[in-house]
Design a binder for these strands. Structure first.
Lengths: 111, 111
DNA sequence: TAACTATATGAACATATGTTCATACGCTCA
DNA sequence: TGAGCGTATGAACATATGTTCATATAGTTA
């Protein structure tokens, strides 16, 4: 891993919204739509953050009919993967993130 | 740990120069001066990055006569500390960082 | 005191980033 | 085909960030 790559990955995590998105995707694959509702943010900004995460290689997308689903990617480079994994672990267990997961479960039950 | 704190810590690491500074300070306490020479950057920018790291609580400074020495801080909050530790570990072993350590050793021998 | 070394900081600038609004695009179904 | 839903993206904007240059501050020594 080059230093540029490390910085790129760390920057990808350096934002509240992206951290919360990653927290959700750590659990399961989700449609853009579901992420918007869970975080209470408009579709535009969620989509842009997802695009950035995708370009950084942290998530990937999959279109299914009208919806686009995003999920975490297991990075090929061992160091990069370890970095991502340790950050994801490092932030888990924080209040905000547990709250988001709760809300996601509630929304899923409703439909 | 609050989400704001997590973002703050991650942002502190999201820069090449700061990553390289932290890599050096992981090994030992250093004067601003030594960091400048090792990284080949001017004093102003190194000082500013150090100030930022200090305000984030990741490093602390100690004045000894004319010089100011910086070193890593063990964060009190368990989650924060784990996050910092795992990032520091995650980036260790990268080429650029090993090169910096080599150069530091060379500079130290010279005096 | 003055001269010197080491460090911090203000001003200015270019660039990056996060956000909103509006709109384009892609797919499905009637 | 057209209507409607879900998603992506361009334009515009305010703010944050990284950098350089010049200067201020602080300690040391002659």
């Amino acid at each position: 891993m080059r230093i540029k790559r490390a910085r790129q990955i760390l920057k990808a995590f350096s934002d509240d919204t992206r951290l919360r998105i990653i927290n959700l995707l750590e659990k399961e694959e989700l449609a853009v739509n579901e992420i918007c509702r869970t975080l209470g943010k408009n579709q535009s900004i969620i989509s842009k953050h997802l695009t950035r995460l995708r370009l950084t290689g942290i998530v990937r997308d999959r279109r299914n009919g009208i919806k686009v689903y995003y999920c975490m990617v297991r990075l090929k480079d061992r160091h990069s993967n370890r970095l991502v994994r340790s950050i994801a672990q490092g932030i888990s267990g924080m209040e905000t993130f547990r709250g988001d997961l709760k809300k996601l479960r509630r929304l899923k039950k409703k439909r």
